[in-house]
Design a protein around this nucleic acid. Structure first.
Length: 723
DNA sequence: TTAGGTTTTG
C-alpha cells in the first residue's frame, strides 16, 4: 500500500489531489462498487503495519516506503468519523484483504500457526465434547499425500467448519500445529477461521462459513479447482449413502432425511422419526413411546406412518438430538441397520440405531436448506403423494407385491432368485433330489442332494458365526476379543527388552523409550542375505508394543510377531494372543496342540529362495498348530415334505468370503449380510423364499444317553450372480 | 479442558 504525504497549509493541501478523483462520503460506501477514482477524506489510524522500502524510492516523487498491513500480522485500520456523517458506530474497523500464505501438509512444523487447504478425508460432525465446547475432528489430505488430523473446538457450533461429506474442501486460517504421538496435529487457536467448499469437480465455488467477513481471492478459485481434481482420483468417498428404499441390513450407512418427530425414550436414548420420501422394503421397528412424549405434527406423522422410520440415538447423541428442530434436514452418519427377529416372530424387522460414541464419524449433522442434497430431497418430498403412501398400507409391507410401484433393484434380484436356485453344487451333479422327510426318516450316515428353502438361520448376528477351528484336535473356540490381546500385551510390556538379544545375525533391532519413559519398545527386523527388505516384504518381531502400534505396523509390514525377551532368547506371547498379524488378519495357535519352538527357526524361512512368509509355514517352524477361521451356522431348511437343521461349516467356499477377513472388513460383512438376505429375505412369506440346492450329509453323534443324527452342508456354494 | 478417527451388540 503506497503512502504519499500531502503537506497541509492552513487546512489546504499544498499539492492538490489529481483532478479525476471524486470525494465519496463514508455513509454512501457500498460493497462491490468500483472506487478506483474515488477517495474518502477522513482521519485514519493504522496499527500493526510493516514498513517496506520501495525499490523505486526517490524516482516518482512518492514517499520511499510502503506501509504493509495484513490481518495475519494483526493490522487494523481505524477511521474517525464526524458525528452525523454516518449511521455506524463512532469507530468503524475495516479489515484489509491480506495476502495469505498456505502451507502444504508435508511442510507443517511443530508449534507454528499456519493457514492451509485440504480435502476432507474423514470427519466427525460437531458434537458436544466432554469439556465446555463443541468438537469436530477433521482429517485432511492434500496433493503431498500427507494426512493431518485436526481437533477443532468452539463454544459456538457455527464457527466450526460446515463439512457435510468426505471430499469437501476446507481452508483453515490460523490453525495451530502441534506434534502428537510422532505426527503433526492441528488444533484450533485464537482467531481460527474456516471456509468449506463442495469438493465436486465443476460444482459452484461457494464458501460455507459463519464469518461475516472473509477474504477469498480469485487465485484461490484455482486452488479449489485443482484440489477437486486431485481429490477425484485420490480420496475415496465415504461409506454407502442410502435411501430408505435401498437399505439392507447393511450394518452402517449415512442417511439424508427430514425430521418429522422426536421423543424422549429414557435417559440414555432418544427417538428421531425421519423420512426421505422412499419406503423401506422391510418391516421396520416402531419404538414404543408415550403419545405425550412425541413431538411433531400429529397429522403429518399419521400420514407418514408407513414412510417414516424410527431411529434410536444413544448416549452422547441424545443432547444434540433433543435440540433438533422438527422439519429440519439432517444427515445422520453411520446409522446401524440391524436385522432382528424375536423367536415368536415369523418375520424379522429392521432396526435403526445411532450408537453411542463418535468413532467412524458417527453423529448427526443439520444441513442448511441451501445444501444441494437438501434441495433435491425437498423437491422429492414435495412430489410424494401422501394419499398413495396411505394406500400402500393395504399392501402389507411384509408381503411385497411385484407390482409395487417402486420396484427396487433388490426386488428384481429377488424375483430372479425365486426361479433359479441361489446356491449351486460344486460336485455330484448327477445325483437326484431327495425330499427332506425321506432324509429325516433314514439312518445316518448318508449323502443327499436337496432342493429346499432357507426358513431361518442362526446366528442372526453374522459376526457371531465366525469361530476358530483346530483341525488337529477338532476343537472350536471363540475368536479372542481385543481386550484379551491388549491385556497380554500390557503384561508382556512389563518385561523390558533384553539388550543382549538385539541385533542377531538374522535380524536388526531398533529400540526406543516412550515419551513418558514408561515403556521400552524393541523392533527386530528379520533380514534376508544379511540385508533388510522392503517393508511390504518384511517380517518383524516387536516387544513392548501396544495394540494400536502393532495394528499400525501390521498394515505397513508383511508380518508382525509380538514377542518378549527371556534371559537367553525371544519367545512368543501367550497363545490367547495372535502369534502373527498380517494386514488386518490375526492368526492364532491352538493352545492344546502347539509346542512353541525357538523363534530363530524363522531364519530358515528367510533364507528360502522364494520368500513368501506364508502363515502356515511360519506356524510350522514356530511349532504352532494354526487355528483356522471358519463360519459355523445353522440353517433351518424346509421343503413341501418337512424340515431339518443343517450345519454350515465353511472356511471360504460357501460364501466365497474368507472367514479370516470378515471380522475386520466392513465391505465383506455387508456382502455376507446381503448374501444372507438373498438366501433368506427378511419379511417374506415361505412361498416367496428362493430355492437352495445343496448337498448335505447326515452323521451320528453319540453320547452316553442317546444317538443323534446331524446334517452338514457340503460341496455347495452361493450362486455367482448372488454374491 | 474438550480430542487425539478405527463402529454396538441397547
Amino acid at each position: 500500500m503506497p503512502v504519499q504525504l500531502l503537506k497541509m497549509m492552513k487546512g489546504q493541501s499544498e499539492t492538490p489531489l489529481p483532478s479525476h478523483l471524486q470525494k465519496e462520503n463514508l455513509q454512501h460506501l457500498q460493497e462491490g462498487r468500483d472506487y478506483t477514482n474515488k477517495y474518502i477524506q477522513e482521519t485514519f489510524i493504522v496499527t500493526g503495519f510493516k514498513v517496506v522500502k520501495l525499490p523505486t524510492a526517490g524516482k516518482d516523487g512518492r514517499h520511499d516506503c510502503h506501509l504493509e498491513v495484513s490481518e495475519e500480522a494483526g493490522s487494523a485500520v481505524y477511521i474517525y468519523t464526524k458525528p452525523g456523517t454516518t449511521a455506524a458506530s463512532e469507530t468503524a474497523s475495516v479489515s484489509v484483504a491480506p495476502k495469505y500464505v498456505y502451507t502444504p501438509l508435508n511442510h507443517l512444523k511443530d508449534g507454528t500457526i499456519v493457514n492451509l487447504y485440504g480435502v476432507v478425508k474423514f470427519f466427525k460432525p460437531p458434537y458436544i465434547s466432554k469439556g465446555t465446547d463443541y468438537c469436530s475432528v477433521v482429517t485432511l489430505m492434500d496433493p503431498s499425500n500427507v494426512k493431518l488430523t485436526c481437533s477443532l473446538f468452539s463454544g459456538n457450533l457455527d464457527s466450526l467448519p460446515k463439512i457435510y461429506k468426505v471430499g469437501d474442501i476446507v481452508r483453515f486460517h490460523r490453525i495451530k500445529i502441534r506434534e502428537y504421538n510422532g505426527q503433526m496435529q492441528g488444533i484450533t487457536s485464537g482467531g481460527f477461521a474456516s471456509l468449506t467448499f463442495d469438493g465436486t469437480v465443476g460444482a459452484p465455488i461457494v464458501p460455507r462459513t459463519s464469518s461475516r467477513e472473509y477474504t477469498f481471492m480469485d487465485e484461490e478459485q484455482k486452488t479449489i479447482e485443482d484440489l477437486r481434481i486431485w481429490a477425484a482420483s485420490n480420496i475415496s468417498v465415504s461409506g454407502p449413502a442410502a435411501k430408505l428404499s435401498g437399505v439392507q441390513p447393511m450394518l452402517f450407512f449415512d442417511l439424508t432425511c427430514q425430521l418429522v418427530g422426536k421423543a424422549k425414550v429414557d435417559g440414555s436414548s432418544f427417538l428421531l422419526k425421519v423420512w426421505d420420501g422412499t419406503k423401506c422394503p422391510y418391516p421396520t421397528w416402531k419404538v414404543p413411546v408415550e403419545a405425550k412424549d412425541l413431538e411433531g405434527e400429529k397429522v403429518l406423522l399419521h400420514q407418514l406412518r408407513n414412510l417414516a422410520v424410527d431411529i434410536l440415538v444413544y448416549d452422547n447423541h441424545v443432547q444434540l438430538a433433543e435440540s433438533l428442530q422438527i422439519g429440519s434436514f439432517l444427515r445422520i452418519y453411520s446409522i446401524h441397520t440391524k436385522q432382528a427377529s424375536a423367536d415368536n416372530e415369523d418375520v424379522s424387522h429392521i432396526e435403526f440405531h445411532l450408537h453411542g460414541g463418535t468413532c467412524y464419524g458417527r453423529g448427526i449433522g443439520v444441513l442448511p436448506e441451501s445444501n444441494p442434497d437438501v434441495k433435491e430431497l425437498k423437491a422429492f418430498l414435495e412430489s410424494v403423494d401422501l394419499t398413495d403412501s396411505q394406500n400402500m398400507e393395504s399392501m402389507c409391507s411384509m408381503d411385497i407385491d411385484s407390482t409395487f410401484g417402486n420396484v427396487t433393484d433388490l426386488e428384481l434380484h429377488l424375483q430372479r432368485c425365486q426361479q433359479l436356485s441361489v446356491t449351486v453344487l460344486t460336485d455330484h451333479q448327477d445325483l437326484s433330489n431327495t425330499e427332506l422327510k425321506t432324509i429325516t426318516n433314514s439312518p445316518a450316515p448318508q449323502q443327499y442332494r436337496i432342493r429346499a428353502k432357507l426358513r431361518t438361520y442362526k446366528p442372526q448376528k453374522l459376526h457371531q458365526s465366525v469361530k476358530l477351528h483346530c483341525s488337529k484336535c477338532n476343537s472350536l473356540q471363540e475368536v479372542p476379543d481385543r481386550d484379551e490381546f491388549d491385556f497380554i500385551l500390557h503384561n508382556s510390556a512389563t518385561t523390558a527388552p533384553n539388550p543382549e538379544l538385539h541385533n542377531a545375525s538374522w535380524y536388526e533391532s531398533v529400540t526406543w523409550t516412550t515419551q513418558d519413559q514408561k515403556r521400552e519398545i524393541a523392533i527386530h527386523f528379520v533380514k534376508r542375505d544379511e540385508m533388510l527388505q522392503h517393508p511390504e516384504d518384511t517380517l518383524l518381531m516387536i516387544e513392548g508394543g501396544t495394540l494400536k502400534e502393532i495394528w499400525k505396523l501390521a498394515k505397513r509390514f508383511k508380518c508382525v510377531i509380538p514377542v518378549r525377551s527371556t534371559e537367553d532368547d525371544l519367545e512368543l506371547l501367550d497363545l490367547s494372543a495372535p502369534f502373527l498379524l498380517q494386514g488386518s488378519v490375526k492368526y492364532y495357535g491352538c493352545k492344546k496342540c502347539s509346542t512353541p519352538k525357538p523363534v530363530k527357526n524363522l531364519s530358515s524361512i528367510a533364507a528360502e529362495q522364494q520368500l513368501s512368509w506364508e502363515p502356515t509355514e511360519i506356524a510350522q517352524v514356530l511349532g504352532i498348530e494354526l487355528l483356522q477361521y471358519v463360519f459355523i451356522m445353522k440353517f433351518t431348511l424346509v421343503d413341501e415334505t418337512g424340515a431339518l437343521n443343517a450345519y454350515l461349516f465353511d472356511y471360504e467356499k460357501f460364501f466365497q468370503i474368507p472367514a479370516s477377513e470378515i471380522l475386520t472388513n466392513n465391505f465383506l460383512q455387508q456382502k455376507m449380510q446381503m448374501t444372507m438376505d438373498t438366501l433368506c429375505p427378511p419379511g417374506r412369506k415361505l412361498g416367496d423364499l428362493p430355492w437352495l440346492e445343496c448337498f448335505i450329509r447326515s452323521y451320528n453323534v453319540r453320547d452316553a444317553m442317546k444317538n443323534q443324527v446331524y446334517y452338514q452342508i457340503f460341496d455347495t456354494t452361493v450362486a455367482e450372480d448372488v454374491v
